[in-house]
Design a protein around this nucleic acid. Structure first.
Length: 350
DNA sequence: AAATCGGGGGG
DNA sequence: CCCCCAGATTT
């Protein structure tokens, strides 16, 4: 079967069945860019609310370039992969300086921007500018691996690069954006993962090799992922009257630049926690168990034990701790979801 | 090529 | 519990 045979049925199906998504209403280069960054490794349903809020707060690229980091991270809080938004701001500053505040209508120049790889550059180029560039994501790789019964590991860069070349060679020059989106849309709603593909309603079922051979469940092939390591942590909810302590994480690494409740490696006993608090030049008055919580990242698990510690202190800062008012600080400090189990201990009086 | 980087929804 | 998701960057 020739790859270009999928084009017409896919485009027809897409026009009839495409979802009404916020970023499809007014697909300016900036809107497409924001949506594609948010959608990286993230489901459509999770993105919708963030997308609307983000563009309301930062309607233009200039606004993104000028946004204070805490406000920016707050807009991304809970979405994950926080380097996405930091890179987007770096790119926005470049765009203001070098391109007069407009994304360039050139694939190679878009690709040079921080946080934009071949997928996102292809999506912006094709959807916003009508350029004939493919946008190969996990959906596209899954769909094509099934249609062609290709048993190669779709996680390999070499496989993705070859698919990009093959698609670019046959893409329709008149509707590249619709074609790219039709492949992704098919993967998202018909040729879905985990073996429950809806082949009965697929517009290219007659062209699908896996469908013909009953092997849809075997594709795509993926290398086994290595297992996560486990980190044990003790989380402190340090309270001083109406204030509680947070600290800023380092500029590099996991959750870089976000805020967190003070914590240490390993599981400490109450006595060890009291000594640790004293070592911070604080005077512990009372300690209470705040229970256990688990948070799973891609490559690590945090197994946490929490303690509420009331302290007496007049200091605003102690070491690298920052005491912030429960009410005044509301909405100012981006705190990742990893600590959501413990937020309730500082949101109200005990 | 492999590791890093989040979080949530669904089987 | 495990899977995967409109991936990019660093090592």
């Amino acid at each position: 079967m020739k790859l270009e045979e999928i084009i017409k049925p896919l485009l027809s199906w897409y026009e009839e069945n495409k979802r009404d998504l916020p970023w499809r209403r007014e697909p300016t280069p900036y809107h497409v860019w924001v949506s594609e960054i948010m959608l990286q490794q993230t489901r459509v349903e999770a993105v919708k609310g963030y997308y609307e809020r983000f563009l309301t707060a930062l309607p233009q690229i200039e606004d993104l370039a000028a946004c204070p980091e805490n406000k920016l991270l707050k807009l991304w809080e809970g979405l994950g992969y926080y380097n996405r938004v930091k890179n987007m701001q770096k790119a926005a500053k470049e765009i203001v300086l070098k391109y007069g505040g407009e994304l360039p209508a050139d694939y190679e120049e878009i690709l040079e921007l921080p946080g934009i790889g071949s997928y996102t550059a292809g999506a912006i180029s094709s959807i916003a500018y009508g350029l004939k560039k493919p946008a190969v994501d996990g959906n596209v790789l899954r769909v094509l691996s099934r249609i062609t019964e290709n048993g190669e590991d779709i996680l390999k860069q070499s496989v993705k690069r070859r698919v990009e070349q093959e698609l670019e060679a046959v893409m329709p020059a008149d509707r590249p954006g619709a074609f790219n989106q039709s492949l992704m849309e098919l993967g998202a709603v018909v040729c879905i993962p985990n073996g429950m593909a809806k082949c009965q309603v697929c517009p290219v079922q007659h062209l699908c090799s896996a469908r013909a051979h009953g092997t849809v469940l075997e594709y795509p092939k993926k290398a086994a992922k290595k297992q996560r390591r486990i980190e044990e942590k003790t989380v402190l909810l340090i309270q001083n009257g109406q204030e509680y302590a947070v600290c800023r994480r380092p500029d590099k690494g996991l959750l870089a630049g976000l805020y967190e409740f003070p914590n240490m490696d390993g599981w400490l006993t109450e006595e060890e926690v009291i000594r640790a608090v004293e070592a911070l030049k604080l005077m512990p008055l009372h300690i209470k168990n705040a229970g256990e919580a688990k948070h799973i990242f891609s490559h690590v698990e945090w197994h946490m034990k929490g303690y509420v510690v009331r302290v007496a202190s007049t200091e605003k800062r102690a070491g690298n701790l920052l005491f912030i008012d429960k009410k005044e600080s509301k909405g100012k400090y981006p705190i990742p979801s990893a600590f959501s189990a413990y937020r309730k201990y500082i949101e109200e009086d005990e």
